[in-house]
Design a protein around this nucleic acid. Structure first.
Length: 415
DNA sequence: CTTCCACGGGAACACTGGGGTG
DNA sequence: CACCCCAGTGTTCCCGTGGAAG
């Protein structure tokens, strides 16, 4: 330890060795999720389908609305971005007024925010909040209708928008009737295959005029994708033969998520680099896989709202105090009240806490099943579904929760 | 068949941070 | 400036419901 520090100080600069030409990566950027590749393996069909439909825009017609389904990391966004680039290039060449608007509905997730953003794109001044929605809408409408054009609005993660009411979509699908110059068509991208069930049937049929499905990649297809990117990202011969197939297999076993496969590959490379290894080996991939899993949990826990953290702490505390794994919602709620009291935060109602538990369940931090105990009513049985030592330190990082670490462990008799 | 209890959907409410208007 | 309007968010309140033990 000591001589390692000493060695570091003898170098000219702390960063010298850190930025020195790595022997692993030639270009790490191509492994990042934001990178849009020139070539998308195994997506010919989808690209062709999308291009066929959108080509109408170049002929001064209005393309049909499109709904795109597929799980995370199946190339939906990349494909759409790729096709939009091509379309925009061609439109420019032909001098037709056709543009594409990419909107992440997770960011613009309410009616107001969506219309306000759209209005601003068309040079209308609209405040972030404060106006009645219909006013914002007509600003947007006037803005877009000011000249003859065809606008293709891409709503990524459209399910996030729908979860707060489908009125915005309803309005957008019918806006063409109110426009005289401009035309709009919509592309909705969703990774939830069942979300259309929440939609008004009129919206559903109008938005889903055309549907394109992105199936998950299998291991062989993932291998192709990784091969292609690895050729650009890494120097020749630094990857062991087993590395890519292993990354592909690990990602395929989840749900064919290419993003995950790429993350895995990148992290493996980084680990190898930090270990000063000349090659990326199977070992590196395995530790990358572990680290990725860990990071996911830590990241999720860190960004939990305070109350949610307390609820999670309650489950944690319970599993420390008693030697069982599952707890009834009543037990959790009691513990929750105790903790709130201890850290000086107002406790919420049981109703609200069950909502938090459901959210934790969806996030996979906790496992909850409803069980009926016959005469004695029904409860949710709750168990922690991630390792304690993974969660605890992250929870205690929150300064408002520091006090929890000092809570005394009650004996079983007092309860 | 009854009975019990939390689950979970939905309405109602409070609060926030911004707008326009007189 | 005071005042009310508006969208959005987080919460509480109310209540119908599922389903096995008794």
């Amino acid at each position: 330890m000591c001589d390692r520090v000493a060695q570091r100080y003898t170098m000219d600069n702390l960063f010298e060795e850190l930025i020195g030409d790595g022997e692993i990566f030639a270009n790490k950027e191509v492994l990042r999720p934001t990178y849009v590749p020139e070539h998308l393996p195994h997506r010919k069909e989808q690209i062709k389908g999308l291009a066929d439909i959108l080509s109408a825009a170049l002929k001064e017609e209005t393309p049909s609305n499109i709904l795109i389904y597929g799980k995370t990391g199946t190339g939906k966004t990349s494909t759409v971005k790729y096709v939009s680039n091509e379309l925009e290039k061609m439109a420019q060449k032909r001098g037709s007024n056709c543009s594409l608007l990419y909107i992440n509905s997770e960011v613009f997730d309410t009616q107001y925010r969506l219309f306000a953003y759209l209005a601003r794109v068309f040079n209308r001044r609209v405040p972030m909040i404060g106006w009645p929605t219909d006013m914002v809408y007509s600003e947007f409408k006037n803005g877009i209708d000011a000249e003859k054009r065809c606008v293709i609005v891409i709503l990524d993660e459209v399910d996030k928008l729908v979860s707060k009411g489908d009125e915005a979509l309803y309005i957008l699908t019918r806006i063409n009737g109110e426009l005289t110059n401009a035309r709009i068509s919509l592309i909705g991208i969703s990774n939830d295959l069942t979300f259309t069930e929440l939609l008004d049937p009129r919206v559903k049929s109008s938005l889903g005029e055309e549907e394109i499905i992105f199936p998950p990649y299998n291991a062989a297809q993932l291998t192709d994708i990784l091969d292609e990117r690895a050729a650009m990202a890494f120097y020749d011969t630094v990857l062991d033969d087993a590395v890519i197939p292993l990354c592909a297999a690990l990602a395929a076993s989840e749900h064919g998520d290419a993003r995950r496969a790429l993350d895995l590959l990148r992290l493996s490379g980084e680990i190898a680099e930090r270990a000063k290894s000349k090659k990326v080996s199977e070992e590196h991939v395995r530790s990358a896989c572990q680290k990725l899993e860990m990071n996911k949990v830590v990241e999720v826990v860190k960004t939990l709202p305070l109350q949610s953290k307390i609820v999670l702490s309650s489950v944690l505390q319970l599993s420390k105090e008693k030697n069982k794994r599952r707890f009834s919602s009543g037990e959790v709620y009691n513990m929750y009240r105790r903790l709130c009291n201890h850290v000086g935060i107002e406790a919420l109602t049981q109703r609200r806490v069950t909502d938090f538990i459901s959210e934790l369940d969806i996030l996979g931090l906790v496992n909850a099943v409803i069980v009926s105990k016959g005469r004695y009513g029904r409860t949710k049985e709750i168990a922690l579904s991630v390792p304690e030592e993974c969660v605890q330190p992250v929870l205690l990082e929150d300064y408002k929760l520091k006090a929890i670490s000092t809570i005394r462990v009650r004996t079983q008799i007092t309860l």
